[in-house]
Each structure stands twice: as structure tokens, then as C-alpha cells.
Design a protein around this nucleic acid. Structure first.
Lengths: 315, 315
DNA sequence: GTTTCGACGCAGCAATCGACGCAACTCGTA
DNA sequence: TACGAGTTGCGTCGATTGCTGCGTCGAAAC
């Protein structure tokens, strides 16, 4: 009984919101301590906290705050956070405000994901991504959810030179989610596709998306990861003899065509070399290199290679 | 034995606080002699004194007195970190030939892992690590298997300036394995521990090991990942208000003590700041920063923080 | 006679209060 | 397409609250 009184700061820390936000929620939505004398400090009981947990969870899921507050306020007594089978798309009211991430018209789920990222809530981030992956698959999740949110963070990051920690956390969570997909779909057959970032290229997330998409349809691959120097890539090709190599470059600076030329000149030259990512310039690519425009195209190309190999070896 | 009965004045002199403060601590926080008849003189046993020492140390480090008291009150049950059930490698057979990785005396499993890494066989790598994690736990796997192999790769890499692709692949696989552990053990309660690499620090694997170890015992945390600039770290602390922050630095160049100072000066200053990793120099750390020597110690410190917070908020 | 006891009070300081405003998103409208 | 209106999270400011260490005082314990 004595310890049932949490201060405003403690509650804010628990929920991952600012103290001022708690005050705002109190006066705007009536979501405050049940007994509070104006001027005195707020003391939140477990019941009050449970209400706020609901509020936070709903907003993280993309529900508009006003609606979430209405929901939380009428929640009679649900101390443990349970599962409300809430489907996206309920919110009709306006939304926005505060230090948020622009996600364009990517939908409430993306908004919820962006909010979870802003509060560094890796659990919510992971669950949101996993749900979407399970429901819509890798390609749709990447194009419809992850890329908009990541782009929004990057945009904001470029503008304010902040949010680096948010960007990193999102990257990690996305990476983990993709790895989870790969683990859930054991690959069939030997890996004939090699995925690699260009030299000095640090962004490997799109490549991981491709890897997850491949895994999802049962295509086996090898993933080298970020920042692979050209000699190391050639060395890997010579050691493993892949049929197709995908080289990702996110920015111009890492898109040296020379590393593609080196691939084509390797002793065990791959059948297909894909230059993926916005870094590559179409006019500077050596002959024989294919440049997919998006994840879906890269995926279908990779599948085509797999199929052709299946034919040539099985037939 | 002779000093089993310390008077209030003696204890006060020993701790460097006023006698009245001892009385206050007794009646406000229950931090008094275990056996005390009201009206009679207080007699402090060594156990009582130990509790008070904890109380004083924590408050000196900046912990709020109420919180420190809660911590001190249930201190006796803080067993030192032990229990590493790692079965030592007993390999006697020769091994080697070709391009291999030196793993020292880390056992046959490590040698197998190194070979799989050389083959770029991510499936075998992943399975080996997962098996070890399941059998021996995170700490033992890290110390006994992963660290030796990673060190071996790094050593060879430094010597031959090759193997970069092997190093990357291993990193990815280890990272995935740790993420898998984290996913398999859903965390309990809100995250109060923040894990972050130092500015410009690219090695995040040891930090991920700590994260996985925390997850394994059900402790919730937030992981920011590699290359977190000092302002971003402070920003994250202010937004999430963690109780403890672990900052990892692998090399001297990234171990700028200033980022720790900034942490301690943050508006929502964490209870505990841990400077982890071989980069930090003990003599350059600001006061109030703790420097764990290995994974196990960092782990037990983090657990201690968690326990104390559980008491203060829920107990 | 010295030390400690319990009670009371005080001053410094951190946390919080209420009020206000800013920035930024979304949506309707022109 | 551009722009204003409505929303919303949160930073800031001056004032207030409440926690904390410790000094003081008469009485009791050693």
C-alpha cells in the first residue's frame, strides 16, 4: 500500500514518455491520477498506471491519441496489459504533432512503428515488424512499412542531425526481424546466390530484405554483409563459386564500378551480376551487369537464376 | 568479533555522516541495527554496518537516498557472479592444414566453428553457435567459443589483411544468434538498462553478448547499437530515463571520457554508468563510473540495478 | 558525566506544478 | 499544389512542493 504511489517522473520513465506529456494527457484527456489535488504532486496508483499503459500501447499501434485516450479512460479495471484485438484503420481523427517521424501516407501501422521507434521501444518495434512480416510477407513489409519509416527517420535525421540513436535501433530491429524470417525458412539446396554490400557501404538493410525475401520463398543464398572490399568479394566468389552476385550500393561514393569489373574478371565468373541500390549510375556500369530497380525485381531475377540452375542440373 | 557492537557515534564517525543522520536513516528508511529496543542505545552489528556502507556509497555516487536505502535494505542477497559451466576443450588430436584460424586452446567446437567460417558456411556457423548457446548459455559461449574464434579471425586478418569477408560473416551470424536468444526470452518489465557503443565504435558484438545474457535471465534492456555519438546517447537517456547505461568501447580511439561525463551531467542522470570494454583507461574515467572487467561482472551489476528497481517500483 | 534517544525544525535542492508556446504531422479546402 | 485549421508531443519558465541531511533540546541510558 505504501509503495503504490508512483511519482510523475517514475511513471514517465516507465512508459517512455516525457513528464510533460503525462501532464498533457491528464489535462487534455483526463488520464491522470485518480486522486489529485491541484498544485500538489501527482501520485499514480497501479490502476492509473494500467490506464496509461493502455494509452501508450494503443498509440504505439497507430491509434490516434484522442481515440486511444477515450479507450483507455473507459477501461474499467484491467490491471494486466491484455490483448485487445484491435485492427488497424479505426482512427479517423487527425493525427500528428510533436517530435515525430513523417511517414507520408503509409498507414497507421507505419505511424505506430514510427512512434515506437521514437521512444526507443524495441519490443514494440520488433512485434510490429514481426506481425507485418507474418501477415504480408517480406516484400510488402519492406515497401509498405519499413522503407517509409526508415526513409522518414533518415529524412528527419538529415534535417536535424539528431535521431541517430533512433536510426540505429530501427536498423537493429529490422535486421533481427529479417534474420528471424531467414531462420524460420530453412533454405533448400546449396547457396548459389551471393549477397554483398559494396566496398565501404554501410547500409546493408535493403540487402537483408532481399535475403529475407529469398529465404521466404526457399531460395538459398550467402550473405556477406556490409563493407566488403573488392578483393574480399572476389576472394569469396572464387572460394564459393556463386551463380549470381548481388552488390548493393546505397550512395554514389560507394558505387565504384571497378568492383563489378573485378567480379566479371574473376576466375569463377558468376553467371549474373546484379548492381542493386540507388548508388549505382546506369551509364557507368560495365556490360553484363544488370541493375534491378526495386526489391521485387531483384527477387525475381534471383529466382530466375535459381530456376535456370535447377533445370541445367536436374535436366 | 570484538567489534560486534558498534555504537551510533562510532558508526557515524566511520561512515562520515552525522549521528542524527543515522537516526534519521533508521526511522525513515528502516536502516538501523537489526535488534533495537526503542529508547535504548543502538548497537550496530557488522551486517548492519555493511548495509550502511552500501547506503553511503550509493548516495555518494549520486543515487537518490530513498532509492539507495531500498537497495541497501535487501543487500545481503547479492551473490558474486560465478557459475560458468563450460566444459573445457580436451582435444588432443592434431588439427589444421590449409588456411585456418588460430583459436588457441579453445577446444574442438571452436575449431569447427572457425572452419565453417572459413567456408563462409553461414548455416553451419549458425547451428554451431545456437547449439553452444543452448547447451552452455550466453556467457560461457561468448567466453569459451565466440571470443576465441573472433579473436583468431581478427589476428589472422591483421596479419594477412585478408579474411574481411569471413570476419563480417561471423559477425552477422553471431549477431543473429544473440538476437535469437533475445527473442526466445521475452523480457519482463520495462527496460531500465541502456546499452550503447561509444562514439565511432564499430564493434558491437560484445555489447550484444551482454544483451543476450541479460535476455537470458529475463532482464529487460534497450540496445542502441554501434557508433552512437555522445549527443545521441544523452538524447536517448533523456528520452527514456534508464537506471543504468553501459557504454562499450573496444579501442582507445573511441574511449573518450567526455561522453561519460556528458551522461553524468544529463538532466535525467542514470543511477549507474558502466564503462565496458578494453578501450577505457581506468585512470581517465570520471568519478561515479564503474568499470566491469568482463561480461560476467557487467551482467551482475546490471542485475543488481534491476533488482533494486523492482523493489522500489513494485515492491 | 558523557553519550545517545526521540522529537522537532530548518535550509538547500531536486522534482514537479501549471501555463504557455513551438514544431510538425494530417486533412480538408481552395 | 499550396495553405490554413486542428492535433499532439514536448521544451521552457517561474513558482511551489517535498525530500534530505543535520542542528538543537530535554530526557533517558550507559
Amino acid at each position: 500500500m505504501a509503495d503504490e504511489a508512483l511519482s510523475a517522473g517514475a511513471v514517465a520513465r516507465r512508459l517512455g514518455v516525457a513528464v510533460t506529456t503525462l501532464r498533457t494527457w491528464h489535462q487534455r484527456y483526463g488520464l491522470g491520477p485518480s486522486e489529485h489535488v491541484p498544485g500538489h504532486h501527482r501520485r499514480y496508483t497501479p490502476a492509473d498506471l494500467a490506464r496509461l499503459e493502455i494509452m501508450r500501447r494503443l498509440t504505439v499501434e497507430g491509434v490516434s491519441p484522442a481515440e486511444a485516450a477515450r479507450w483507455a479512460r473507459q477501461s474499467p479495471a484491467v490491471p494486466p496489459p491484455e490483448r485487445l484485438g484491435l485492427k488497424a484503420g479505426v482512427s479517423t481523427a487527425r493525427d500528428g504533432g510533436g517530435a515525430t517521424i513523417p511517414v507520408g501516407r503509409a498507414g497507421p501501422v507505419a505511424r505506430g512503428l514510427a512512434r515506437a521507434a521514437m521512444r526507443l521501444d524495441s519490443v514494440a518495434i520488433g512485434r510490429t515488424i514481426a506481425d507485418s512480416l507474418a501477415a504480408d510477407g517480406v516484400v510488402a513489409t519492406w515497401e509498405g512499412l519499413l522503407r517509409p519509416v526508415l526513409a522518414g527517420i533518415g529524412e528527419r535525421h538529415a534535417a536535424t542531425s539528431g535521431l541517430i540513436e533512433v536510426e540505429h535501433l530501427m536498423s537493429r530491429c529490422v535486421s533481427e526481424a529479417f534474420a528471424s524470417v531467414a531462420r524460420a525458412h530453412p533454405a533448400v539446396g546449396p547457396p548459389r546466390i551471393l549477397l554483398s554490400c559494396a566496398d565501404e557501404e554501410q547500409h546493408s538493410l535493403p540487402l537483408e530484405a532481399l535475403a529475407a525475401a529469398l529465404a521466404e520463398i526457399g531460395v538459398s543464398y550467402r550473405m556477406l554483409g556490409a563493407r566488403v572490399p573488392a578483393p574480399a568479394l572476389v576472394e569469396a566468389v572464387n572460394r564459393t563459386g556463386p551463380a549470381a552476385v548481388v552488390v548493393w550500393s546505397h550512395i554514389r561514393a560507394t558505387a565504384d564500378p571497378h568492383q563489378l569489373t573485378a567480379l566479371l574478371a574473376a576466375p569463377r565468373r558468376p553467371l549474373l551480376v546484379l548492381a542493386a541500390g540507388p548508388g549505382w549510375r546506369a551509364d557507368s556500369l560495365p556490360a553484363g551487369v544488370v541493375r534491378p530497380v526495386d526489391l521485387a525485381e531483384a527477387l525475381s531475377l534471383a529466382v530466375a537464376v535459381r530456376d535456370s540452375l535447377d533445370q541445367s542440373t536436374a535436366g
